[in-house]
Nucleic acid binder design. Sequence first.
RNA 1: GGUCCCAUCGUCUAGCGGUCUAGGACGGUGCCCUCUCAAGGCGCAGACACGAGUUCAAGUCUCGUUGGGAUCACCA
Length: 485
Amino acid sequence: MARLAPTVLEVLMIKTRIAPSPTGDPHVGTIYQALFNRVFAHQNGGKFILRIEDTDRTRFNPESQKRLLEMLDWVGLPADESPTAGGPAGSYIQTERVANHQKYAAQMLSNGTAYRAFDTSAELEERRKIAEAAKASYRGYDRRDRNLTREESDARAASGEPFVIRIKAPLEGEVIVQDRLRGAVVFKASELDDKVLLKADGMPTYHLAAMSDDHDMGVTHVIRAEEWLTSSPIHKLIIEAMGWNEPEWIHTPLLRNPDKSKLSKRKSNTSVESYKEMGITPEALVNYLGMMAYSMPDGRELFGFDDLIEHFTWERVSLGGPVFDLGKLTWLNGRYIREVLSLDEVVSRAKPYLEKAGYDISDTVKLEKVIDALRPRFDVFADVPEKAAYFYRDIVFDDKARNKIEEGRGHLAALLPLLENAAWTWGVLEPIIKGYAESTGAKLGAVMQPIRAALTGKLESPGMGELLEALGKELCLKRIKSATN
RNA sequence: GGUCCCAUCGUCUAGCGGUCUAGGACGGUGCCCUCUCAAGGCGCAGACACGAGUUCAAGUCUCGUUGGGAUCACCA
């Protein structure tokens, strides 16, 4: 286990952390927090650490940690210290630190800032219900064991009676938490209750575990979601009870569902993996998250982690909880595809989706032409196979295309011999097609659209030049010919 | 319900007392470009929640109201 007292250097060094619990699918909210924490630590020459909070054994999911770490790597926000990266602060898995938590709980017990409570969960549940039935708002634990004598408490514990350890929160006065974003947040002591620090199974609760681990690991700035704000006074009390240095508190606004409630799996897509699967690029995801509650000083919307390192300040964080809008994320992703990523990058990121669809993309020259033609026409990579279908699969004609071929069959038949001897570049094909239209007095569209329909089975596609060249002479002639029958 | 947080277009936001008849972006809508569809360009519609103060002057400061959110577990 790590030394308990941080060195001078560590105290001076800014350390931030995220402390996710490995319970389910990697959540965008975790990535959002990682972004704040990593940006702030790194722009100050500090460290960003990740600690797995797995003290809830009932919800523990063994795959979860690995997947979370993978997603942080994927978005380019890996922790400097973590279970896999290691680091000087001891284990980065909370359950491996319970000896410390228990030791601290014992210290609080002996210095009088905590006490044993022998109520069972069932008893507490019942009292809670009674309070609700009486229409009295539940005021938290009734503190009935707070004044047990030391002797009685020790005796009952020694006799094997199960107990939890609770903090002795002050009965009067107030606890003031200085939040970097909101200033002084005042909590009346009378509103606080004696939260459990150590559960009956010997495991710490979040309150104790997070605060003591933060202390032991030298965390200087607790940057976490706003949902923690109301429990921050308890955290401050724990820190005071142990005589530790108080970190700076920064409670960031919560990502929201469209109905403004806290972003949830039920109402929104919170799975980072699913965004990856649908073909959102990690750069766009980070960029999008970066514009949630934050804006660049010059108003630009396209920016990355390095830009944040350069410009991020808490002063520019707005406090209203931003609604996570898939539409805007998708649009932003589209901008990365057509403005930020090189064609090579777009091609290589599109490949897996095409392969998965079973397309033969061994012709890399063709692939590049296809992707280039499609580039302004898709926002997420998962859409590529469908958009590229007629380049790699037999045509599926829709009704409108069928009709258009019917209308233009004469043109197609007349054009075919002109095309058969042509060199297959738009430079030579364009004059042929346009010349044909001109000489017959046909509107260009009346000629083009039947060709398009014959080539793609649709009435919408990339430009004729891109289409002809990407498809290649052989395929084009074959399709036009078959359309004339 | 108690406590705490928050409050500019539907959404993301700019705005840190006068430059705001409130700017940008997504989405919507119209036009242009054009072989279609996109992309792109140019327009349009669309917001300071309300009420008191403070001030010569308030979207910007204060208070209240209203509204939204979070939290009240031996979960994190």
